[in-house]
Each structure stands twice: as C-alpha cells, then as structure tokens.
C-alpha cells in the first residue's frame, strides 16, 4: 500500500516559484506530493475537489498568491468557493481538514514545508 497522496495546487505567480525555491535549497519532503500549477485556483469548481477526493487523493493544499494575487477579486472568490467545498465535504462526510487553502510566496520555503507536514498528519488517518 502506497502512502496517501497529497495534491498541491500552486499558482504561476507565487507558490510554484516558491516550490522551486524549496528545491533549490535542497530541502526535502515526502514524495507522495504532487504539484500542479494554474494561473489561479479560482478556476476550479467545487466538484473538482470532491472528484479528486473520490479518485483517491487524500489531501489537497491550495497554495494561492493571497494578497499578491494578480487577478482582481479572484482571492475573495476563491475563499468563498472553498467555503462551499467545505460545506459539501461536511455533507459527504469528508474530513474538511483534507482541504487547506493557504498563501505561499515565491521564497516562503519554511511555510511551504510546514503546510505539507501539517497535511501529512491529516492524511495519515485517511483511507
């Protein structure tokens, strides 16, 4: 049985370069993490997350650009949408800690690692 998988959604603008900075510093984290990058996570509908969980993803970390977000109103929309996802997760009895919305900057290496280790703790009990 392989380790539970963590999907990390990063932004072209800040957290994807942030993930690279972690690599450049030769820090390490678990290989059960899968980074995808998007212009902005606001593009994903609620069911995208639910489907990902249903397909077998154990945890999802959305690393947004937060206040550095280059798109108008996108962060507010995103956080509202994630609230909706939490509501659906509750209805479906999915532990809401399996989804986390956070902000990671281009050099936030420590914060990046901390988010992963926090999620690792959550997904250990997921199966």
């Amino acid at each position: 049985m392989s380790k539970p998988k963590i999907l990390i959604i990063t932004t072209n603008h800040s957290s994807y370069p942030g993930a690279n900075a972690v690599g450049q510093a030769r820090l390490s984290y678990g290989s059960n993490t899968y980074i995808i990058r998007v212009p902005d996570p606001v593009m994903f509908p609620e069911d995208f997350y639910i489907r990902a969980f249903e397909k077998g993803i154990a945890g999802i970390i959305i690393m947004s650009s937060g206040s550095d977000c280059p798109y108008e109103g996108a962060y507010e929309r995103l956080s509202k949408r994630i609230q909706n996802v939490y509501n659906i997760m509750k209805q479906k009895n999915i532990n809401i800690n399996r989804l986390k919305l956070t902000t990671i900057c281009t050099v936030c290496k420590e914060a990046f690692l901390k988010e992963i280790s926090d999620m690792e703790k959550v997904v250990q009990n997921v199966n």
Partner: peptide, 11 residues
Amino acid sequence: PTLDCASCITT
C-alpha cells in the same frame, strides 16, 4: 506600504 514580499516583486 503594501508589505509585498520584495522578492515576489523583483523576481
């Protein structure tokens, strides 16, 4: 005064 991370603006 925006408290942006300097590297995020410079890179």
